[in-house]
Nucleic acid binder design. Sequence first.
DNA 1: CTGTTAGCGCCTTCAT
DNA 2: ATGAAGGCGCTAACAG
Lengths: 353, 353
Amino acid sequence: MAGSGLSPVSEEPTLDEPKRRPTIGDVAKAAGVSPSTASRALTGQGYAAAAVKAKVLAAADQLGYVPDEFARSLKRRTNRLVGVVISDLRNQFYADLAAGIEQVLGAAGYQMVLVNDDGDTDRELAGVRTLLAMRVPGTIVTPLSSEAGALLTSQGVRVVEVDRQMAESQCDAVLVDSEHGARAATGHLLELGHRRIAFLIDELEWTTGVGRLTGYREALRERGVDYDPELVVRVGFGEGSAATAIASLLEVRPDVTAVFAANNLMAEGVWQEMQRRKLRVPKDVSLVAFDDLPWMSMVQPAVSAVSQPVVAMGAKAAELLLARLSGTLTGDPRTVWLEPTFERRGSTRRLPG
Amino acid sequence: MAGSGLSPVSEEPTLDEPKRRPTIGDVAKAAGVSPSTASRALTGQGYAAAAVKAKVLAAADQLGYVPDEFARSLKRRTNRLVGVVISDLRNQFYADLAAGIEQVLGAAGYQMVLVNDDGDTDRELAGVRTLLAMRVPGTIVTPLSSEAGALLTSQGVRVVEVDRQMAESQCDAVLVDSEHGARAATGHLLELGHRRIAFLIDELEWTTGVGRLTGYREALRERGVDYDPELVVRVGFGEGSAATAIASLLEVRPDVTAVFAANNLMAEGVWQEMQRRKLRVPKDVSLVAFDDLPWMSMVQPAVSAVSQPVVAMGAKAAELLLARLSGTLTGDPRTVWLEPTFERRGSTRRLPG
DNA sequence: CTGTTAGCGCCTTCAT
DNA sequence: ATGAAGGCGCTAACAG
């Protein structure tokens, strides 16, 4: 009497059916075999006669059986989950990163568990703890603190850092050569005759901020231009911070002829402030951005920018992690550098005179 | 001899420690109590003397113990995971949606498991199956097919649909009033004297597409303007589809004076095509978009758009789901409508004559 | 090739 | 207030 063996989807009338989902035991019973045989048939691991296998599969299908990943993970002591910790999903940069990661992970049958830390180290740590609790074998993080990574590795969880790298971390990383990109952008401005170039940066704690500033300074040094600390503006993370920052800088230093915004958010703020003040770009002031976004090619003039292979970076990080997890890759931590490209557009012009 | 009881983080030299993570048994042993007592102390459920509790907590901390969510879920038969199925993380619309969801979920101690289906129903189904396997108690989806939702509900998983709604679905939903928004935008164009308004739409299978088209048609009817099917262009999902579509339409129908792009992607394509063709907006052609994005306020002229409360929509969906899961909300499925607002900007102008 | 047995880590009665 | 026992659903050894 297999009266309970109806497809749950077709069982329309009694929507209030017992919430208990079919277990492998139910499938086994329906197929007239033992649970272990059912397991072998379902997973493909181990022996199972073709006829039996078919019968089990049919029963499983009939019952709408979906194996319980928790139970399976508990037994197998591993799973196909990857934790991803990023700072801000609303920033297209991070969204693209996550998309690149997800793409590779999904193709390999892994599932992404996304944690947003909002740039808050407490939330980062909390997120990591959650991932630990979920027994993820690996994680990909845009690190905020070194504690998070340390905690992860101390528990045997593989970590790949992406976009930025913590100094203490002894793990794989996929990075963009910020220094090189910033040097190219700054060099471009210098070549156009600019000498007083404002540099807007929101953090100097991470390799990204440091690298970009270093690139800026190196370009100056290469051309023998003095470094003016007053032109380096430390911007807050808030919404209108960049706009405020550039506004007050221009107040004090009206001699600035070009602005280098060290990420897409700040570039947006600067752009908006320029509009507000009716400053012409590039006539009154030239602008370059680090991290290229679609809008930068859509505004008039288009914004010259250092373009990062963001999706590829995420994908590469995922590949690295998978290689570690599968044991394909062993040995010392590896750091993969991706090269950004400078896209010259209309927001920069040669200084007259 | 509690030699193994060192904080794993401080245990620098032997990084190659046994991967086996401490279990509640280890904690119990270290604290000199039974596993059950340790469990009570750790979870706060049930009795535990203050002194004992402190001892257990200290031991757990010392060992770097993190409870195994899988084992716990297996036992408790529930967990704090929520599956989120969206179409395209790289589209800021979906990223914002996910961010809104995550925000509310995180605050309630829930973890988001994100699945990207790329608009592919097969991948949607596969994602749902994964979620089922993870025994998530609830999901939030931007539905592609009705099968996915049906499968979920048939297994007792709560579903909240967001952005669009499947006709057959008997579940909660959080939607934006597309019809109203599209009517406002179209009405605005009509008031400016436009009569031949192209309408670009990428799908008519979902409530979003249908609603937007309906709003467009209603606005026409209200003003007694004949509906011209030739002006409704069905656009593919690919990258340059919108640009191609508008290009060929303008070829055939140079009399078109305004374009209504029914989502942000198509608006982008149209904008780019206008640039390429050196068509002036709004002089040569007016443009309105459905779904407002930051770039639309940054370009010159700024694009008039129907602005959706995207993050709020995600947040609301999460709240609804949590209310269902906690039993705070019971009874018939609820549909929450959010009102979009029409932002008039510079891309639309009164038709001369 | 298949069934039996045992146990992954945790929680929750039920006794004490 | 605490411990012992059992079992969540699944799979890996081991017999047969």
